[in-house]
Write a protein that binds this DNA or RNA. Sequence first.
DNA 1: GTTAATCTTGACTAAGAAGTACAGATTGGC
DNA 2: GCCAATCTGTACTTCTTAGTCAAGATTAAC
Lengths: 158, 158
Amino acid sequence: MKLGANEEYGLRCLVRLGYAGEGGSLTIPEISHAEGVSPAYAAKILRILRKGGFVKAARGKEGGYMLARAPESIVIGEVMDVLGGRLFESSFCETHAGQAAICTRSVDCSVRSLWRAVQVAVDHVLSKATLRDLLQNEEEMNAWVRTIPGPSGLRLMQ
Amino acid sequence: MKLGANEEYGLRCLVRLGYAGEGGSLTIPEISHAEGVSPAYAAKILRILRKGGFVKAARGKEGGYMLARAPESIVIGEVMDVLGGRLFESSFCETHAGQAAICTRSVDCSVRSLWRAVQVAVDHVLSKATLRDLLQNEEEMNAWVRTIPGPSGLRLMQ
DNA sequence: GTTAATCTTGACTAAGAAGTACAGATTGGC
DNA sequence: GCCAATCTGTACTTCTTAGTCAAGATTAAC
Ligand code: FES
Ligand code: FES
């Protein structure tokens, strides 16, 4: 259960575009330099974001990338799905069944319930966060996290 | 952000050992057959669990694996750490900095706050679950999940 | 003590993700 | 029309994870 590179860099590139402001655009070299990744890799990530509908591209001279929608309408959970898939995919039990056709407890599996609970907990945070929330500084972000109902928010600063 | 194979199979092998009851032991061929994984892979996973201190092994004829402690004292969060590491490792920002020495916003990074919030949400579920909870059937497990305070539990059955 | 069942270990191969390279297509400016 | 800046797409290499293999060490039973 690890965060992937696409998720980290993809989100950072998206935040970087958000900083460019409404209608502002950045080129691949600019984003590459700002985030410290190679231009080729930035291009690969931006392509994923474009196919996900979060950014749009303008080609040719004076081209570049810009947000496809307003930051407050870009839900981070959806971005994460595109960049790295879900934690517990619906096909997970089928693809991790080993030699059997499916987990031998498939009709009654407590492990599956646990995965679902973890997925719900993650979604609870990521479905409430929008790109707008990430465009503030770290301290304001921490304050935002505390507004999430339930212990997830309350316990962050321990 | 995906679950890994070790986490899935490792947890399933541990649950299987839990079913063997207090003092009960299972051999690698038995576990392998019950969970539908190859004996070689089961051995690899059980080694990880043994090094983590969750199971102990008896060698030689009449040997096998058994739980090293009572199921209620085996916290799933600790098992998951051993099997697949943390979602947001403390070194994550250092190892995903690209060509720069660190994320260019390292002193004030809202993305980092988000990762921490997700990690807290996951820990909130996994630190409360013990192997004992996983030894019940799926329905009882779902009921248990609902006892977790906060929306993570409440929303599972939607 | 011999044997057979069992765990132990490190090296090996296969598959997937991370990151790079390069040829091609598009656009604005001259 | 030509050029330079830019995005687009596919193929490639590299690194990590998943999974296998084979030789070795330990123990109970006979
Ligand atoms: S059905 Fe997926 S882990 Fe059991
Ligand atoms: S410091 Fe880790 S993402 Fe910015």
